[in-house]
Design a binder for these strands. Structure first.
Lengths: 250, 250
DNA sequence: TCAGAAATGATAGATATCAATCAAAATATA
DNA sequence: TATATTTTGATTGATATCTATCATTTCTGA
């Protein structure tokens, strides 16, 4: 059997079953353990399967790298996401910024009829298979860490868009305003804000009191901020003083 | 955290990533190894995940969005993809059109240093996590069936791009030229052709002799066509007569 | 045909995972 | 409140897998 033939066989088996043990492969392909190991090493290296201890598993086209890595305050993020999604009415147009919380928002939107604009690969991925959602993807340079599109291409694409609401996530919030860690991202988000009538910011308690590299906007640029119950009262009143509505849990 | 909540979390993570190691779960859920083991045992016993040595993998159809399990001529497509990928040299810029075959091409490119431009969500997903690849995503209306961006937004974004090679897939090939099933897609692909110096078309034997709704271009617009060994000689010579190079299996 | 390169199979020590067990903590029940 | 039950976390010896190495075989190109 040729090398590529054998690897193709491994690929097929893995794809069909989702997972195979190394021993199964050794038996079925009738090659030595070492050979199969080397095949797995190669196939894993080229991104075709995922090697695991004792075998290999299939790599779907799923969200892969991005999601779930930072489960910080995930509980709070989920509750915030639910509240946010409940605000969105059928038939609306909405921009969803990239982020863990906004991805959770998207999960709650899959059954509504909406026009969604997003620069986030994970969100696009989630929504693309739902035909009730008209999905407009914002392209650009893709930032590998989070899978969002950035830069001039993204900004240009956003210029021709106008929707009712923007749901935005941020890296940090201080009395100076909103922050994110990437200047290109901030440029993109500024254009998002120009393209929407109402600016909604979702922020869990971990965001307050922290700034970041790039300043996005002052607090009063927001229309509505949605937070969890663990955000100190002092922060909420500070934001309210700027004329921004604050929606908190129950 | 409640028991069921924890198990749901394991389920979610497993489903999203296809596979998780036990150690990852211990870290992210912050429970003891024993507890997670017991959870996995339970979830495996009730058929919700498949337990593997060192972790767990997702069970059930890899519904993962777009890809069609019953794709025609998958073997041939894979071999064509391999040949195509071998042509691409490190440092190049390349446009990858959406399609089953081009997705396979992308799999072979993950370890090269490249600039990749694509309008395909599945391809973007695959490549986004590889930092050696500079990924530029073409946005636009997302066609739910296949997860590719189409329309004026996509065309505009492509206008400002110029790369060495375009790898394109087609719906059908006749003596009249290349076809695809969607007019918006064809408009987008026409701009792709303008944005590349060399046009490579990948086509398995199932494509020949079939036209489709929208005419893309005449045969002589191609520079190189890559086919499998089952394409009849008559088609290959027809294409060659138009001054197009044809690369076939060995 | 021959030499060099690549692929293969076997082995062994190091390392990680597993199942089983038990005590402590949390929860439920009387 | 006290007791029984369940859940959890830590430990341990047994077992499986991993990496690295090396001799052998197969493939490749001059």
């Amino acid at each position: 059997m040729l090398v590529d033939e054998r690897r193709q066989k491994i690929l097929n088996i893995t794809e069909n079953r989702g997972y195979v043990s190394l021993q199964e492969l050794v038996t079925e392909i009738d090659a030595s353990e070492s050979t199969i190991r080397r095949d797995l090493e190669q196939l894993d290296g080229s991104g075709q399967i995922r090697r695991t201890r004792g075998g290999a598993s299939y790599i779907g086209e799923s969200l892969m790298g991005f999601e779930d890595r930072s489960t910080q305050n995930m509980e709070a993020k989920r509750r915030i996401a639910k509240m946010t999604a409940d605000l969105i009415e059928p038939g609306e147009g909405v921009i969803l910024d990239g982020g863990t919380t906004t991805l959770e928002v998207a999960r709650h939107l899959v059954n509504k009829s909406l026009m969604v604009v997003t620069n986030s690969l994970p969100i696009a991925n989630l929504l693309a298979s739902h035909s009730n959602i008209e999905l407009i993807l914002i392209g650009g340079y893709v930032y590998p860490k989070t899978g969002v599109s950035l830069g001039p291409v993204a900004v240009d694409a956003l210029r021709s868009i106008n929707v009712r609401r923007l749901v935005m996530s941020v890296g940090g919030i201080t009395e100076k305003g909103l922050f994110n860690s990437n200047t290109l991202l901030v440029e993109t988000e500024k254009q998002m804000m120009n393209s929407a009538d109402e600016i909604i910011v979702v922020a869990d308690h971990g965001k307050f009191g922290h700034s970041a590299l790039a300043h996005l906007c002052p607090l009063d640029r927001m229309d509505l901020m949605i937070v969890d119950r663990d955000v100190p009262e002092s922060w909420k009143s500070l934001v309210r003083e700027q004329g921004v509505a604050v929606l908190e849990e129950e």
